[in-house]
Amino acid sequence: MAAIEAGIGVLLLLTLTVGFALGVSPAATESPQLEAYAHDAAVILENEQPRHQGQSRLAELTASAAAFDRERAALDRRAERLLPDNLLFRIETRHGTVGHRLPPDVPTGTATVTTGSGPVTIRVWYV
């Protein structure tokens, strides 16, 4: 009898152990890195000189719908070159978005820059 009871007890404890071994949350390991990438891209683009006029490249992008249409291809290329190859990105402005379509349920890193003509949000995620 005692052996059966002990067996059940041991089983119970082992279940707990397995729970601990697997269950300690594998803390969001990728999110600080993604946030860092988004932040860096935002800072670098924000400090880049505008191609035509405005305070910065990002401010130029948001200035008007016409400016957005003119700048989007160049900005797309620039962001593509800047970010590591294993990342996709999306830049959101008042006049539209540049970059890839954001898939549902992926961890993203986000950075927002405030410009004179509205906010610009940069999101990055792993391919």
Binding site: L13, A21, V24, P26
Partner: peptide
């Protein structure tokens, strides 16, 4: 009963060690 107790205590110690290690690593 003695054997059962020894078994249980060993397992408990093992479980606590694993848990502590996991927490520390994390």
């Amino acid at each position: 009963l003695g054997i059962a107790l020894v078994l249980l205590v060993t397992t408990s110690v093992f479980a606590v060690t694993v848990a502590a290690e996991q927490l520390e690593a994390s």
